[in-house]
Structure formats: structure tokens, C-alpha cells
Design a protein around this nucleic acid. Structure first.
Length: 534
RNA sequence: GGGCCUGUAGCUUAGCUGGCAGAGCGACGGACUCUUAAUCCGUAGGCCAGGGGUUCAAAUCCCUUCAGGCCCGCCA
């Protein structure tokens, strides 16, 4: 073990060999690997020690401010070169410090914005001034008291009479001009991204506003917000592979929900009439620009409504969002203009296939459809055996990517819609719709299946598929079928993907840009190289 | 799962037809009382993502592992 007790402690050389050893700084033990992992700056740790030695509370407990930075900018917008009489107290993180001998300029930022600070030795006195000069670095959080004025160059500035260290940063800040660009670091250390990249902070601010906008839209219209289990003994409500976990004391396997659907419908059975949940769902699938293993949805159910009502509601909700967030009904996504002016286009799946594939489903036999699928190398067609399956495959293959402007596609084949009610007129179809924007599926809704016998049969079919190896087919939830057995009113339901909505409204083509902490593979720093033979 | 690309100092990066690893910012020391990516002088900081190979010589060429990005397939 290596002891570095000499003062100042941080000046002790930290030997650069790769072997494991420990460094003691003022009695605190740092393993070398910790220092590697911690990214602490030894000179800053030294400053913390010295400040404490001078009786400075480096991490005090509270601070009162009279103004946020935004409030200062508003209130003193017309400030001139003379100091304003009214004093202000504000706080924030130091981003840049410019030393000029006996004056210092610094840029400080809080959640609402940034502002320049001006400090002079004449005002603070040599001791306080020196404390700032020596110990306050970019990254530190300080509180300042002073008077607002405008510099000769016109910059609104707080002329600092006194300052308080509120939190000392011991890690190096990202570069002040270029900031933090490395995508991986931005995702893994989102706090740094938020700290220095204004656009990123803006994106997540918008995300927060979108969610609160969805919530208030629904609450205002009398929908009740509920929370249903994330840990479920039987998963359902969607076709997807679940995450599994285990409860030690129940001694029972549990699944992370893939959808809240079956529980929300139980609430409808129980007598709540308009319900919604904003939930995280978990699907054990690949990660890419459109998929994160956990993602956010809002699911909405309302009694005595059918799928066409739910299309109206979806259109209403999303146009309201666009108007609220963007102040217009047009948004630019990846340099394409998306027009949310109502009414949005609505077309049946068969019409979509007719329009985009030039295939009229009615004109072809089952064998004919199979032949067309083979000719066009439609993905998954080798597993198709019914007209409905071909319709769904043709839609995905030919039509989906062309649905750029907001478009509802309705009347889905019954095969892939085990929770949707049979179509009131069309044999072999369900009353189901999906909303597509920029080729992305944004919402999925239906007239909810409330016939318990039909539901039982459909889930049994799913279960047979699952047992035959379809990893995404659903389990049978007998309690859910029982709930329907007690009688569920005719109900319309819809689920809207929040992450994709945020992508659209913030013009990001990767879901990781709109999820604060996207799932990343954990690096295993101490793993020895696996295939080194010596 | 398949294809393409990326990984060099804390951050942003140059070097990639093999020949001493460079810069800016940041850090540290110094000068500077209206700067704002301040400026000026000086110092330290790199197993060039990891491992293996080819070579007199590898950041550079080859193989491989890891991590990430983009596109495609499956899913919302």
C-alpha cells in the first residue's frame, strides 16, 4: 500500500503502472481501479481538502435565491451600464471562468438559463477574491449575491458582492466549446449531456411536457388514471417476448408486463368507465433506433365506444399535443413536412394494399396470394396459410413504409388480433386500427373483444401457437377471461407509443435520443481478455 | 441475426499510402481590473479500446474480442 500523507495530498504522484495498489489521500483510501472508474480529478480533491482546512463548508445544506436566472433576465432586461439598485441572489453551476488578474468573469447556469458573473478584487476584498480565484472552477455550484448591470459589450451580468460555494465538483467538465459529442458517453452519462448540451435538455423538457399534456388532456375529459401491476404472474395484452423474474418469498416466477391491457379491462369490468395508464412496458427483444427494451405507452379505455371513436380520440389527443408543443399543425421530421391538420386519412388495410401494392385481395384465390407473395419475396410468407395472414404481410411489405402523413389503417385480419372484437360486417376481420406516421406505428386500438367465449377460444389458439414454438404468442389468462365472463360493456381502447411521439415532436430518428437512460450493455472492465493463450 | 462504420490525453480531435504520438480546450504555475471559445508565457498529462499476428520497426497492415453508431430483418 502506498501512503501519500504529505501535504498537499493530491500532488502525490500516482504511479501509472497497471498493477493494483491503493493510494491514501488524507486517510481516504482510493484503489487505483476506483480512481480509474471514478474519474475524479486529484487536484480538485485537493482543493476540497484545502477548503475544508480553511473552514469552508464545501457541501452546505441549503441556499435561498431571490431570482432564477430566467427571472433575472426578465426583470432586468432593460438594465444599463450602471448597477441596478435592487440586489439579487441566485445560484447555479459555473461553466466557464475567465480570469483577468484582479477581475474575473464567469458564466453560470441554472435550469432556466445562463448568465455572466463579474467579480472584482476591489469589491470582494483580497481574501474572498483569492478564494474564488484559487478554488472555484467550472463545474462547481455556487450561490452569488450582487447587482445586475450590462457590460460595455452589452452582456447582462451580475456584479458579484459575495459568493457561497454550494457544491464542489471533483470531476473534470466536458470541453467548454465543443461540449460532449460522443454518443455513447451522452447516453451512458446523461447528466453530462444534460449539463452541457442545450438541445438535449430541450428534448427532455419537451418529453416532460408531452407526458403532462397527455395526462391533462385525459384528466380534463374525465378519464381516470390508474396504475396496474408491472410484475405479472401471467403476461398478456400484446404479442411479445417478456422479461422473467422471480419472487423469492412467493417462490414464483413473475413477468415484467408487456402491456397493461388485460388489467385495465378488468377495471372496466369493475365499473370504471373511462380509464388510462401511462406505463412502462418491457419487451425482451432487440434494441435498435426504434426499440428500447422498456418503453412508455399511454393506454386508454372507454365504455360504450368503438374503434372509430378511438380513432377520433387518438386524432384529437395527438393534434392537441402537436398544437401545444409546436404551436402549429405542421412539423418537420427528418426534413419531411408532416401535416397534422384534421381530418387525418383513414383507409382499410385492404384499401392500403390495393393502393400501395396494386393487389385486390378479392380477386385472388389463396394459392394466387401465395404466388404473389413468393414473387415479391414478401418476408414471412412461408408461414402464412390464410387470406388474413397474406393481407397483413402484404400490408407490412408494400404499404407501411409509404404511410408518411398521419394515416389510420383499420380492419385488421382476425389472425393477429386476439384481443380485438370481430368486425360487425366483414367476416374474418376485427375492428382494429393502427395509426402510422412517417411509416412508424404510433398507435394501436380496437373495439375491445368482450365476448368471453370468443376470447377464450382466441387465447386458446394463441396458447397452442405458443406451445408450438411461437415465442411471441400470448398465454391464457383465465382470470381475465372470467372477468369478461362477468360482463364487460362494449368498450373502445387504444395504446399510443409515447417515445415515438416524442421522437416525432423533437425530430429525432433514434429512440435513444428521447429516452433519458437508454439500455446500454454494461462494460466489464475487470474481465481478462478471453482468448489470450500464453 | 446480417451488412457498413467508429474507438488516439478529462473533452474536441490531427496523424491511418508503416519510421520519435501532435494540437486546442480543460488541469497545474505565472502575467493581466469590461472579458465572453478572453489573451500571453510555462508545466504535467497517452500501454493510440483489449488481445494476438506480419515487420528491423505498427496508432497506422492482418486476425480476433469488447463497446458504440447507422442500415436491414423481428417487434411498438
Amino acid at each position: 500500500m502506498l501512503h501519500c500523507d504529505a501535504f498537499p495530498a493530491w500532488r502525490c504522484a500516482l504511479p501509472g503502472s497497471g498493477s493494483m495498489f491503493e493510494v491514501v489521500i488524507d486517510g481516504d483510501v482510493y484503489r487505483m481501479s476506483d480512481i480509474d472508474r471514478l474519474n475524479f480529478d486529484t487536484s480538485k480533491i485537493g482543493k476540497v481538502r484545502e477548503l475544508a482546512g480553511r473552514g469552508v463548508t464545501v457541501y452546505p445544506y441549503r441556499f435561498d435565491r431571490t431570482h432564477t436566472i430566467e427571472e433575472i433576465r426578465e426583470r432586468f432586461a432593460h438594465a444599463g451600464h450602471e448597477k441596478c439598485e435592487e440586489s439579487v441572489t441566485t445560484a447555479g453551476r459555473i461553466y466557464i471562468v475567465r480570469h483577468h488578474g484582479k477581475t474575473i468573469f464567469a458564466d453560470m447556469g441554472d435550469c432556466s438559463g445562463r448568465i455572466q458573473l463579474y467579480l472584482r478584487q476591489n469589491d470582494l476584498g483580497p481574501e474572498r477574491f483569492d478564494l474564488f480565484r484559487q478554488y472555484i472552477d467550472s463545474g462547481d455550484i455556487i450561490g452569488v449575491e450582487g447587482h445586475v448591470f450590462r457590460t460595455k459589450k452589452g452582456e447582462l451580468t451580475v456584479w458579484v458582492d459575495d459568493f457561497t460555494l454550494l457544491s464542489k465538483s471533483v470531476c473534470p467538465m466536458p470541453e467548454k466549446f465543443h461540449g460532449l459529442k460522443d454518443v455513447e458517453t451522452r447516453y451512458r452519462q446523461r447528466y453530462l449531456d444534460l449539463m452541457v448540451n442545450e438541445e438535449s435538455r430541450e428534448t427532455f423538457l419537451t418529453r416532460s411536457r408531452i407526458i403532462s399534456c397527455i395526462r391533462s388532456f385525459l384528466l380534463e375529459r374525465g378519464y381516470l388514471e390508474f396504475e396496474t401491476p408491472t410484475l405479472q404472474p401471467i403476461y398478456g395484452g400484446a404479442n411479445a417476448r417478456p422479461f422473467t423474474t422471480y419472487h423469492n418469498f412467493l417462490e414464483q416466477k413473475l413477468y415484467l408486463r408487456i402491456a397493461p391491457e388485460l388489467y385495465l379491462k378488468r377495471l372496466i369490468v369493475g365499473g370504471f368507465e373511462k380509464v388510462f395508464e401511462i406505463s412502462k412496458n418491457f419487451r425482451n427483444e432487440d434494441i435498435d433506433t426504434n426499440h428500447n427494451p422498456e418503453f412508455s405507452m399511454v393506454e386508454i379505455y372507454e365504455v360504450y365506444r368503438d374503434y372509430s371513436d378511438m380513432m377520433d380520440l387518438t386524432e384529437d389527443l395527438i393534434s392537441c399535443l402537436v398544437a401545444e408543443i409546436q404551436n402549429t399543425c405542421e412539423i418537420v421530421f427528418e426534413s419531411t413536412m408532416l401535416n397534422f391538420e384534421r381530418p387525418w386519412r383513414r383507409m382499410s388495410m385492404e384499401d392500403a394494399v390495393r393502393e400501395y401494392a396494386g393487389i385486390d385481395m378479392q380477386e385472388h384465390s389463396l394459392d394466387g396470394l401465395a404466388e404473389i407473395a413468393r414473387q415479391h419475396a414478401v418476408e414471412g410468407c412461408e408461414h402464412a396459410s390464410t387470406r388474413g395472414e397474406y393481407l397483413a404481410l402484404f400490408f407490412e411489405h408494400f404499404a407501411e413504409k409509404n404511410l408518411i402523413q398521419p394515416t389510420f389503417v383499420y380492419d385488421f385480419p382476425i389472425e393477429n388480433s386476439p384481443l380485438a372484437k370481430k368486425h360487425r360486417e366483414k367476416e374474418g376481420f376485427t375492428e382494429r386500427f393502427e395509426l402510422f406516421i412517417y411509416g412508424m406505428e404510433m398507435a394501436n386500438g380496437f373495439s375491445e373483444l368482450n365476448d368471453p367465449l370468443d376470447q377464450k377460444a382466441r387465447l386458446e389458439l394463441q396458447d397452442r401457437k405458443r406451445r408450438a414454438g411461437d415465442v411471441e404468442a400470448q398465454m391464457i389468462d383465465y382470470d381475465f377471461i372470467n372477468a369478461l365472463g362477468y360482463g364487460m360493456p362494449p368498450t373502445g381502447g387504444v395504446g399510443i407509443g409515447i417515445d415515438r411521439l416524442v421522437m416525432l415532436l423533437t425530430n429525432h430518428s433514434s429512440i435513444k435520443e428521447v429516452i433519458l437512460f437508454p439500455q446500454m450493455k454494461v462494460a466489464a472492465p475487470d474481465d481478462p481478455p478471453k482468448h489470450t493463450e500464453r
